[in-house]
Lab assay of single mutants.
Amino acid sequence: DDVELRDGDWRVELKDADEEILRAVEEAIKNGASEQELRELAERLIR
């Protein structure tokens, strides 16, 4: 699993992620995405 989400800690570690993925995830976090939404976003972007 390349995506690590810690309970109560919104730092997201994406291994080997490019800047576009990181920006998309950071934007989702700023917009108040839930953990499930972040997982789905990350899975779509990593593929």
Rank of each mutant, 00 (worst) to 15 (best):
L22M: 11
E19N: 10
R47S: 15
L22T: 06
E20T: 13
E43L: 04
K30I: 09
R44V: 02
E4T: 09
L5H: 15
D1C: 05
A42L: 15
D7F: 02
E35V: 09
D7G: 07
D9E: 02
D1F: 12
D1T: 09
E40S: 08
D1S: 13
D7R: 01
E26W: 03
I21E: 01
A33S: 05
Q36E: 11
R44Q: 12
L22V: 13
E19D: 12
E13M: 14
I21K: 01
D7H: 02
R39W: 05
L45K: 04
N31D: 06
W10Q: 04
E27R: 12
Q36W: 02
E27M: 03
V12D: 15
L41Q: 00
R44P: 00
D9A: 01
L45H: 07
I29W: 15
R23Q: 11
Q36A: 14
E26T: 10
L38E: 00
I21T: 11
A28E: 01
L38P: 00
G32Y: 00
E35N: 08
D18K: 08
R44A: 10
V25I: 15
L14N: 01
R39M: 07
E13Y: 03
V3W: 13
R39I: 09
N31A: 10
G32V: 01
K30A: 12
R23A: 12
E37I: 04
E37L: 03
D7E: 08
A28I: 02
E4N: 12
S34T: 12
N31F: 02
D2T: 14
D2I: 14
V25E: 00
K15V: 13
L14G: 02
L5F: 14
L41G: 00
I29S: 13
E4K: 14
I21W: 05
I46K: 06
L5K: 14
I21S: 05
E26G: 10
D18F: 06
R39H: 05
A42S: 07
D2M: 11
K30E: 08
D18S: 09
K30R: 12
E40D: 10
D1K: 15
D9T: 00
S34L: 04
D9W: 01
D2H: 12
D1P: 11
E40P: 00
A24I: 15
E37C: 01
E37H: 05
R23D: 03
A24W: 08
E19T: 06
R44Y: 01
A42M: 15
E37D: 07
I29A: 13
R47T: 14
E4C: 03
I29N: 05
D18P: 15
D16Y: 12
V3L: 10
N31M: 10
I29D: 05
E43P: 04
L22D: 01
D2R: 10
N31H: 11
E35H: 09
A24L: 14
E19Y: 09
E27A: 09
E19L: 07
D7I: 06
R23W: 07
R39N: 04
D1M: 13
E26D: 09
E37V: 04
L45S: 05
S34W: 01
L5V: 14
D1Q: 14
L38V: 13
E27H: 07
R39P: 00
A24Y: 08
V12I: 09
V25G: 00
E35W: 06
A28G: 03
V25L: 13
G8D: 13
L22H: 09
A33N: 03
K15R: 12
R6Q: 13
W10L: 07
E37N: 02
A42T: 13
I29F: 14
A17M: 13
V25P: 00
G32K: 03
A33Y: 14
D1R: 11
R6I: 12
K30D: 04
E27K: 08
E4M: 12
E20C: 06
V3G: 12
V12P: 10
V12C: 03
R47L: 08
A28V: 01
Q36I: 11
I46M: 14
A33Q: 04
A24E: 09
A28P: 00
E27I: 11
L5D: 13
D16R: 04
R6F: 14
G8R: 05
D16I: 06
K30T: 06
K15L: 15
D9Q: 01
I21F: 06
G32P: 00
I21G: 02
W10Y: 05
K15F: 09
A33V: 10
A17Y: 12
V12E: 15
D2F: 12
L45A: 08
I46Q: 11
A17G: 05
E20V: 10
L41P: 00
E13S: 15
L5Q: 14
A28S: 03
V3H: 13
A17K: 06
V3I: 15
E26I: 10
V3P: 06
A24G: 02
E40Q: 10
E43Q: 09
E4D: 11
K15W: 07
E27T: 08
E4V: 08
K30W: 05
E40R: 08
E40W: 02
D7Y: 02
A24V: 14
G8A: 09
L45T: 05
R47V: 11
E35C: 03
A24N: 04
A17P: 03
G32E: 02
N31V: 04
D2Y: 11
D18N: 09
E43K: 11
E20F: 11
A28D: 00
L41A: 01
R47P: 10
W10F: 08
E35M: 10
A33P: 01
E40C: 05
S34V: 03
A24F: 08
D16C: 15
S34Y: 02
R11W: 15
A17T: 06
A28Q: 02
W10D: 04
W10P: 05
R6C: 13
D2P: 11
N31Q: 12
R6W: 13
D18G: 15
R39A: 09
G32L: 02
A42Y: 15
Q36K: 13
A42R: 04
I21A: 04
I21P: 01
R47F: 01
E43W: 00
D18V: 08
R11D: 06
E40A: 14
D9Y: 01
G8N: 14
L14Y: 07
R44T: 06
E26V: 10
A24D: 02
A17L: 11
D18I: 06
A28F: 06
R23E: 05
R47Q: 15
R44H: 13
A33W: 13
L14E: 02
D16H: 09
D2L: 12
G32S: 02
R39K: 13
R23Y: 05
A42D: 03
A17R: 05
R44N: 13
D7T: 08
E19Q: 10
V12K: 14
G8S: 07
S34D: 06
V3A: 10
K15S: 10
I46Y: 01
L38F: 02
